[in-house]
Nucleic acid binder design. Structure first.
Lengths: 243, 243
DNA sequence: CAGTTTACTAGGGTTTTCCCTAATTTTCTA
DNA sequence: TAGAAAATTAGGGAAAACCCTAGTAAACTG
């Protein structure tokens, strides 16, 4: 009884042989799959879509494996995918898998995160649209229609987030995230380190001894709370202390 | 004869005293200033706008000083500003000055550059919109209307550029800018270096000798064409090989 | 104005990084 | 399957980075 997997009534095996092989997309409703592990949300989205005459929710999935299963058995036009499903990494991996394996199925990422780097990562994984979960009904429908027409959908809020994204400004976990106060000499030395100069070269350039420069290096390590130059550079870049 | 500076006939000093102090913007046309040192372009934009019943070009400027002069004497709603005017830095500075000094005047940046970092810089300097010079008439008019309504205007091409912007991916001058091919071991070591581990710690963690790790470090320096760990980290971060 | 703090300058000694060469294993190819 | 190319493993020695302490000059404070 494999056809039980069909959730779209228009695609029961019986009907399958009656519809033309080449179907005009405009005669069919846009089939949407909602993938979210929060039931309330699935219900909410479904009720937003329910009034539409051109879009219908043909499947709801609460976990990753059922999404794959659905796609393998019933055609889906657009997936509304919660990226935190259950974790961000899972959602991203699923998004990538879907867009690779089912290129005809468009993915709209749907999250609460207004984070530019996440938006970019999602797009890299093949998502055609990105919506925040506080979106409106009109926008949701518009987004579904747009991606179904093979066009990307990103509203002005998303554009704004991307615009004001200071790359690499947020720390992953450790550290205070606050720029330490650097003395003029320390800033100078930090800049020169980031340009690849050795202590010897800096000493020559600044007309002081090697030991003086070495002290400034140590001060930098202490102020940034890092054990070595590698992490100093990384941290300073993340904090935008150096270009 | 200071009023000679008025280029908008509705604002000759004579008329000035007859219009109400609080003018309903919708009764007036949107006054546009075109700032571009390429005459052909000014002409072109002007002809695109000329047909409109709600937008009019009230000034054209071919250099920075005349833009300031115009703004000091005649009200302008929207400025179409070529950022390379004559150099990118000049255009950015002018944009910042305008938006600080004349907050009521909205700036639309108009350039040939489809460069995400430039877009971000322009927005930081206060521009309310960004158009590529190959824009259409409809879009140009739409952008002017949008920013005049205090809303930012960025079309989907711009959004796309921002989306696919790999932050810090272009080198200022040196280097090829291409990610070198790393062996699995090298990637592993690079990651550990970026986490602040010393060669000794990596050797312990990967169950090999210190010297083995040291060789991988050297290979990394060679492949990235850098002299030391500091520049390795910086370069690898710019190329998004780490983090 | 004396005392404290802050920034800059160093030296000694240890650890780490880096460059050279080279052996062994793995992968690719004719 | 034999030979070549690439990856991984090391060692010796020089250079650089790092940690400790400490002196000097300028700024700040009561």
């Amino acid at each position: 009884m494999w056809f039980r997997c069909y959730t779209d009534s228009r695609f029961t095996p019986q009907r399958r042989h009656r519809v033309p092989i080449r179907v005009n997309a405009y005669e069919l409703m846009i089939r949407v799959l909602i993938a979210d592990d929060h039931n309330v949300f699935v219900e909410g989205i479904e009720s937003l879509i329910s009034g539409s005459s051109e879009i219908e929710v043909t499947a709801r999935c609460f976990d990753v494996s059922s999404v794959i299963e659905q796609l393998n058995h019933a055609p889906i036009d657009v997936i509304l995918l919660d990226i935190s499903f259950p974790q961000v990494e899972d959602g991203l991996a699923l998004c990538e898998h879907i867009t690779r394996t089912f290129p005809a199925t468009k993915v709209i990422a749907l999250t609460m995160h207004d984070d530019a780097s996440l938006i970019k990562r999602v797009v890299k994984k093949g998502a055609k649209g990105y919506l925040l979960k506080n979106t409106t009904k009109a926008e949701l429908l518009q987004a579904i229609r747009t991606v179904h027409r093979e066009k990307p959908y990103f509203n002005e809020i998303i554009t704004n987030i991307l615009l004001h994204d200071e790359p690499r400004n947020r720390k992953s976990g450790s550290g205070t995230g606050l720029k330490p106060n650097l003395t003029p000499r320390e800033s100078e030395v930090l800049t020169l380190i980031s340009q690849g100069l050795t202590t010897q070269q800096m000493a020559t350039q600044l007309f002081v001894s090697v030991k003086a420069i070495e002290f400034h290096r140590s001060s930098l390590l202490m102020k940034f709370s890092v054990p070595n130059t590698a992490l100093l550079i990384k941290t300073a870049m993340e904090m935008q202390c150096i270009d």
